[in-house]
Write a protein that binds this DNA or RNA. Structure first.
Lengths: 182, 182
DNA sequence: TGGATAGGTCAGTATTATTGACTTAATTTG
DNA sequence: CAAATTAAGTCAATAATACTGACCTATCCA
């Protein structure tokens, strides 16, 4: 029986498409290394965030909530603008996440002293406890990885990840730049 | 004028919430290192994927399309099930992305030889060209980073990212496991 | 006082993903 | 061979995350 719209080649045996591209032609060793890096980053990031997601889903919170929680915890008193710059999302998108965290009592805010337009964001005790819980899962994963590879490899990891970042993010991590620069 | 529902503490000056948690108390150096790792992964991954996104948005394609394109390119003849295992999404989600790539002529498929239920996915010439273009942007970023930090650091980066992965993903990258194991 | 800035919000839309149910074709198994 | 299983496709509804565009208030600054 013929399908109305066969998307696949209906052959009696495996017949590659007319002009089958060579299976990822490796021009030089450097090229292969770069492609491997793509995989490393994908799987490493996937499995690193996965352990956090598992903890969060029980609390009806998503990855976006965790990101906000994390960076508020890392930067007590951060402004909304600062958070927007780090997360690189629009304020309408942050609003959903941030209002949920505030409504649930994870995040508190206070008007700035010098500039009272600013909303200085902080974690509440409850928020701090939640962040600690989620962090514990990721900390265990990192700790295992770090112990498995040794301090020299960890140093290399830090250097590469750092080099991958934009200039502003590097400055932020060095403590020589503000969240707004990221 | 009073707001109906003031979400923030209306104070004359900066008054932290009653029980302000200490600004990310660092218990030991290891703890700080783990927290730094969270930041490294976030910013590194953010800026790595960002260069690809910029190329893709001109072609009306999203990050999901690129992920499928990448792993089909890396694994010519991969099955739908294999792709699903790597991406860790449902087949209904993959369908949208994959059908778009097939309709646009980036991906071709053929029935398997031994098992004709299988749809063996490959990149067409056009798909291969697109993947190359997107890869070029990421390759440049990685190449710059690798050159800046030296081969020893690169080796450390690889070891840490590898250790962060789940067992199945490690086996896949070693070539000793199939996509289904990831 | 008027413009710029920080922030909030409403409305609509897009992307990526989900759950659940159902179908077809092909393989495997009793 | 019939029944169960597997690979894949599809329809429908929903959720999470993000977007554009517009408009508003409060505050700061020149």
């Amino acid at each position: 029986m013929l399908k109305a719209k066969p998307r696949y080649a209906s052959a009696d045996r495996f017949v590659p498409p007319p002009k089958l591209p060579p299976p990822t032609p490796v021009v030089d060793l450097g090229e292969a290394e770069m492609r491997a890096a793509q995989d490393l980053l994908f799987f490493g990031y996937r499995d690193f965030t996965d352990v956090a997601d598992k903890v969060l889903e029980e609390l009806e919170l998503g990855r976006a909530h965790h990101r906000a929680l994390h960076f508020i915890g890392r930067n007590p008193g951060i402004t909304v603008s600062g958070l927007l710059a780090i997360l690189r999302i629009k304020k309408q998108s942050l609003a959903r996440v941030l209002n949920a965290l505030i409504d649930e009592g994870y995040v508190g805010q206070a008007a700035g002293f010098e500039d009272r337009r600013l909303r200085l964001l902080t974690l509440t005790e409850k928020g701090h406890a939640l962040e600690e819980t989620v962090f514990a899962a990721q900390r265990d994963k990192i700790a295992k990885a770090y112990q498995a590879v040794g301090p020299q490899a960890v140093q290399g990891f830090r250097m590469v990840m750092r080099a991958m970042m934009d200039h502003g993010a590097r400055a932020y991590m060095d403590g020589t730049g503000s969240p707004e620069d990221t």
